[in-house]
Design a protein around this nucleic acid. Structure first.
Lengths: 201, 201
DNA sequence: CGATTTGGACAGCCATATTGACACATTTTT
DNA sequence: AAAAATGTGTCAATATGGCTGTCCAAATCG
């Protein structure tokens, strides 16, 4: 494994204006995004996102599932008791599209539904133990991968990464992320908050 | 491979508590990746990548194209004179999958082919003026978006973002990125290096 | 009560990816 | 020169994950 990219960004940029690792002087940081910098950003996002998902994708493929299933497992695990409508809002897909991954997940007992306590039309979604186990396996795959990247980059870089990624999100996504983070103090396991798991139908 | 165990971490965390919790005392940054931190990373990557591509996707949809077409335009524009084989390596897809986006792009004169100068079996790909124009329109969309995120986050964060994204890439992708960056000093326009544009067939 | 909301079911379409098999020109090897 | 390998193109079949549209049931709201 030769030639690890240097942390110190060796690119001997021809510009004296030092655009790459921009001077922290924070004075002219309004115009430091030149063409090549954006092209680099495009490359980084393409390769980085692809390889980030690769590990989990492989595991999913063995189970006959795809990334869409993972997303459902992830967000249902993140917010046990989430309604179908909320999940649709987060994923940004249509009800029909969701149905095609959610229905099998319910049928194969990865996800369970229960009627809403206030509004009995709602189906509150949560992971079954089986679903939790799978989600955790997927999680661990990505954990290894991200841990390595974070460790190599260091905490300051991680903070910068988070700031930029947040900035790449649109207003709707930011709001959704906030809600997810609120709930981060989630109960020890995936039971909906205080819902009395009423049977459906 | 230096392994980068601790990564000197220049400033002992000038960050506002943003780094979630974890004592960032720069000593124990090996273990600062707790569960919620990774879940956050997953969310950020999902939302961020989705919204990053949203603008270009919309424009592409109007032209009856998809993200796959954009990727071809991007990487061909990045490395004029690239061979089909190299492009396949970068995209990580099969020849058949590439063919179904590349062939239309050639037919509609966004991309042009010419025979390799050393190996006449090769088809060297480059953007036509029409292709360059479209690529630029797509580029500008994303440029606006990324510029905003970069500006909001500041140069230090951008540097961190780059480090982490690089870290998320696997060895193969890192090598490919290096090659792309080498060529970054590319000629003013998309003519293959010194190829004498031999006709095909 | 009727209207709206929430969720689900079914049909079909499209884009992107896959694999396998085969064809063809060209280059390299024997 | 013949054989093998390489680079590319193409056909057919299949899967996944989106989309739209329509219709329906249950529950809530006014």
């Amino acid at each position: 494994m030769p030639a690890m990219p240097e942390q110190t960004d060796p690119k001997p940029d021809t510009e004296p204006a030092a655009t790459t690792s921009a001077p922290v002087g924070a004075g002219r940081n309004l115009l430091f995004l030149r063409e090549e910098e954006l092209r680099l950003a495009q490359d980084l996002l393409f390769f980085g996102y692809r390889d980030f998902t690769a590990g989990a994708d492989q595991l999913l493929a063995e189970l006959g599932m795809g990334r869409a299933h993972h997303r459902v497992l992830h967000f249902v695990g993140r917010r046990p008791g989430i309604t179908v409508g909320e999940l649709l809002g987060i994923l940004g897909i249509t009800k029909q599209s969701l149905g095609r991954v959610l229905t099998p997940l319910v049928e194969e007992a990865y996800v369970q539904q229960s009627a809403g306590r206030n509004d009995r039309r709602q189906r509150l979604l949560s992971l079954t133990p089986k679903g939790e186990a799978l989600e955790r396996r997927l999680f661990e795959r990505q954990r290894e991968w991200v841990m390595r990247a974070y460790r190599e980059a260091g905490p300051v870089a991680v903070d910068g990464f988070r700031r930029v990624m947040r900035g790449l999100m649109g207003p709707a996504a930011r709001q959704q992320l906030e809600r997810l983070e609120q709930k981060d103090a989630r109960p020890s396991t995936g039971r909906p908050r205080d819902t009395h798991l009423a049977p459906i139908g």
